[in-house]
């Protein structure tokens, strides 16, 4: 059980360097007590997670279009492993295609975030997502609330 009082361990996997920079800059400006780890692609992420000694993350932001291993594949693998059942997964992508939204919903992502185009908006989004009480968030079951919108 991941308790809310600990500082949140957050992972983000995105192959775009600029997007990673935006994200970490936004988190820094929010000054929330968090522990952020960045990954360049899906393979790096899964290699890291494969290690049994790591502390399980609270929240993972997952880009979809990544080389070597796509976000979809990571999502499937993570959800197939019961070790990560309490890890919340937020899909973080530029795409908002129905197909992507539906497939990630079916594969067990908790929430779908379309990458905002404005830095301030980005900060807002991150703040809200981090504040969601994931224990009670029923997103995995409710398609209407799956697509995150401010």
């Amino acid at each position: 059980m991941i308790s809310h009082e600990d500082s949140m361990r957050i992972l983000i996997a995105d192959d775009d360097e600029d997007d990673r920079t935006f994200f970490s800059d936004a988190m820094m400006e929010l000054k929330m007590n968090n522990n952020l780890t960045l990954f360049n692609d899906g393979k790096e992420l899964m290699d890291y997670l494969a290690n049994p000694d790591i502390m399980l993350p609270h929240l993972l932001f997952l880009d979809l279009n990544m080389p070597r291993k796509s976000g979809f594949e990571c999502l499937k693998e993570i959800r197939a492993d019961l070790r990560f059942k309490d890890v919340s997964i937020a899909i973080y992508s530029t795409s908002s295609s129905e197909k992507d939204i539906e497939e990630t919903f079916i594969e067990g992502a908790n929430i779908y975030i379309k990458k905002p185009n404005d830095f301030n908006k980005l900060k807002k989004v991150i703040k809200e997502v981090l504040n969601v009480n994931w224990q009670f968030h029923s997103s995995g079951l409710n398609k209407e609330t799956f697509f995150f919108s401010i």
Partner: peptide, 11 residues
């Protein structure tokens, strides 16, 4: 993708 970047950097 590139559009998103443009907008982000402008912001």
């Amino acid at each position: 993708e590139p559009l998103h970047k443009i907008q982000m950097f402008i912001s």
